[in-house]
């Protein structure tokens, strides 16, 4: 495959996929440790109504209103889940399931009701994205990376997801200590004066922002795979948090690259000429990685009963 084919057709989707995967995997590590992995499930379902409402409000499908809409929807969902949980004294899983399925239903209804004939916003796309189509038409080869005119026509999703990834990295680095303290020992953190409630919320909002940015690449539902599978696989590889984060990034990158390649070229190698869903393949690869670590990784077993 030459530069002339690779750079316009494959480079942007690959980079977008990688950024999306890593941007989700980073907060996913903490969600996993807080046993809030399914918040990712909730977020990815409520992203849809958030985006639809943002579209109805602003009449456009440009990125920033959608991001804000999705972030607000996630905050709303988290608050609603907490309210339902506390007021109704309902167990957390049911409170989550109840809230996000209803919000999702609302989103689908709004979508059907609103006039989206002029705009590309259908449910299936929302669910599994369109990574393959994020190509860079004006590129002619590796030299285009240095050509400002060509760079101006990069698919806009790429700088967006790259920026989001930067923001996620900065957040993780800045609030590292707070996240670790409040995740490990909540009451101790409270006595230090840390506002663990706000930290929780901030983590969820960051996860939501990553989910929305990744949305274009892999759709909302597969974002869950990115939140959970690389961190879970990493969790099984080590007992140190810093190492776990590193492994989760490695696994996220492998999932994105291998997933995209297999989706695009796998069928070609098998004799068909149509690609399959890159998003689905990325999720599948991350699942295969998880299965492998679950079978073979060094720290996969629970720490047993303590020795004296």
């Amino acid at each position: 495959m030459t530069g002339a084919e690779f750079v316009p057709l494959s480079l942007p989707p690959l980079l977008i996929g990688i950024c999306a995967a890593v941007a989700c995997a980073l907060p996913g590590n903490f969600l996993l440790l807080r046993k809030q992995a399914l918040i990712g499930d909730a977020i990815s379902h409520v992203v849809l109504p958030g985006i639809v409402i943002a579209f109805l409000f602003t009449g456009s499908v440009s990125a920033w209103p959608m991001m804000v809409g999705a972030a607000l929807a996630s905050v709303f969902a988290v608050v609603l889940i907490e309210a339902v949980r506390r007021l109704g004294r309902i167990e957390p899983g049911a409170a989550m399931g109840l809230t996000f399925t209803t919000m999702f239903a609302g989103g689908v209804l709004l979508l059907e009701q609103s006039d989206t004939s002029t705009v590309h916003l259908d449910v299936e796309h929302a669910l599994y994205g369109n990574l393959e189509s994020l190509i860079w038409l004006d590129a002619v080869g590796w030299q285009s990376l240095a050509d400002p005119a060509a760079l101006a026509t990069l698919p806009v999703e790429l700088p967006r997801i790259a920026l989001t990834l930067m923001a996620v990295i900065v957040f993780t680095w800045l609030f590292w200590r707070l996240l670790v303290l409040s995740t490990f020992d909540d009451s101790f953190a409270l006595t230090l004066g840390l506002h663990t409630g706000w930290i929780s919320l901030a983590l969820v909002v960051v996860a939501a922002v990553a989910a929305v940015a990744a949305f274009d690449a892999v759709g909302s539902i597969i974002v869950i795979a990115m939140f959970i599978c690389p961190p879970a696989s990493a969790r099984l590889m080590t007992n140190r948090l810093e190492v776990q984060i590193a492994w989760s990034v490695v696994f996220a990158v492998i999932s994105a690259v291998l997933g995209y390649v297999l989706a695009g070229y796998g069928p070609l190698w098998l004799g068909s000429d149509n690609a399959v869903s890159a998003a689905g393949m990325i999720a599948t690869v991350s699942g295969v990685i998880l299965a492998s670590t679950a079978l073979f990784a060094p720290c996969r077993k629970r720490a047993g009963a303590p020795r004296h």
């Binding site: 440790l33 670790v180 995740t183 490990f184 020992d185 009451s187 969790r235 080590t238 007992n239 140190r240 948090l241 190492v243 776990q244 629970r302 720490a303």
Partner: peptide, 10 residues
């Protein structure tokens, strides 16, 4: 008992 001792920390 209030802490998850499986947390990855030394």
């Amino acid at each position: 008992a209030s802490v998850d001792w499986d947390f990855p920390t030394r």
